[in-house]
């Protein structure tokens, strides 16, 4: 057993260095594909964070009757906060609404100042955990005596939920397709490296090497290619993280989220796992076709 592992590791190491050109091609392909894959993962993670943020920004606004007392409002606020669908309730008084209006429309301050009383109602702004719960909360609010009316944003919410759903599904599909392409390309590059050494496999078979002795050196070699490819990829990502982040945040200025290309632990694990996994799988499949006879 000891001799076997030693043999396999030694052969893998020798195989990697003695077939430099093929190893280089396989590793370069691996790096290229892993960079593409991790770039996509980073992009989709950013998209996901953005969508989460957008969803949390969905607010139900309930305008309150002027007759509602502070006690009524506090009671309503407390009952809303107890609802599982609700993340946050902000109370806006008539005075605050007036100040907000003036701040937002300084040119029209005269209009509102000319009125005898403040026409703006007090309101409650309710943030939702999931925009799909909009109707539940809106219905509840309409049944409350202190509520004058609920701003109807059903159509907007529905459209947004649909778009977000499509974006999420599209992201998953693209990731899946790119993942498959990456798998295919890397497996084929490794297959080329193995085919280039079919003589060696033939000699091993002729001198009576068992399948394990033939297979494992190649599998370890695939793991070396994967490991090296992953290490280079992670190095590239770390090096590129700063410039890419500043580019992204410039590009996505409109969105109130930090669009960053942070190389987190997740990316490192994904790159390492994919690299080594595909390297091993590619070698296994490539050698297998020589062993089954």
């Amino acid at each position: 057993m000891f001799a076997f592992i030693g043999f396999s590791l030694r052969r893998a190491w020798q195989g990697f260095w003695r077939n430099g050109l093929m190893s280089l091609a396989a590793t370069a392909t691996m790096v290229l594909m892993l960079v593409m894959l991790s770039g996509l993962v980073i992009l989709l993670t950013g998209l996901d964070a953005t969508l989460d943020y957008v969803q949390q920004e969905v607010q139900v606004v309930a305008y309150l009757k002027d007759s509602a007392t502070q006690q009524d409002i506090d009671g309503l606020k407390a009952s809303l906060q107890r609802m599982p669908q609700v993340t946050q309730v902000t109370s806006v008084t008539k005075e605050q609404a007036y100040k907000d209006f003036v701040a937002r429309h300084p040119d029209e301050a005269d209009v509102i100042n000319s009125l005898p009383t403040n026409p703006l109602p007090a309101s409650l702004q309710i943030n939702l955990r999931d925009p799909n719960d909009y109707l539940d909360v809106a219905t509840y609010l309409k049944s409350q005596p202190g509520v004058d009316r609920v701003l109807n944003i059903k159509q907007t919410v529905d459209q947004m939920v649909t778009v977000i759903g499509i974006l999420r599904a599209g992201g998953a599909v693209i990731l899946g397709v790119v993942g498959l392409i990456v798998l295919f390309i890397i497996v084929n590059t490794i297959r080329l490296a193995v085919v280039a050494r079919s003589d060696e496999i033939e000699i091993m078979r002729l001198v009576g090497a068992s399948d394990a002795f033939i297979r494992w050196p190649f599998i370890f070699e695939g793991a070396i290619v994967g490991l090296l490819g992953a290490a280079i990829t992670i190095g590239l990502l770390l090096a590129g993280q700063g410039p890419i982040t500043s580019f992204l945040s410039d590009y996505f200025k409109v969105l109130p989220v930090q669009a960053s290309a942070t190389v987190g632990q997740n990316i490192v694990l994904i790159v390492l796992g994919t690299g080594v996994g595909i390297g091993v799988l590619g070698s296994y499949l490539s050698v297998r076709s020589y062993l089954i006879r």
């Binding site: 043999f7 003589d199 033939e202 000699i203 001198v207 009576g208 090497a209």
Partner: peptide, 23 residues
């Protein structure tokens, strides 16, 4: 001949025993 080009004579010959797990 079917020798492995990047191995010495000694290693080519020993290879036949190595792949059987010999010490």
């Amino acid at each position: 001949f079917k020798l492995l080009p990047n191995m010495t004579v000694r290693d080519n010959v020993g290879f036949a025993l190595e792949v059987t797990g010999a010490r």
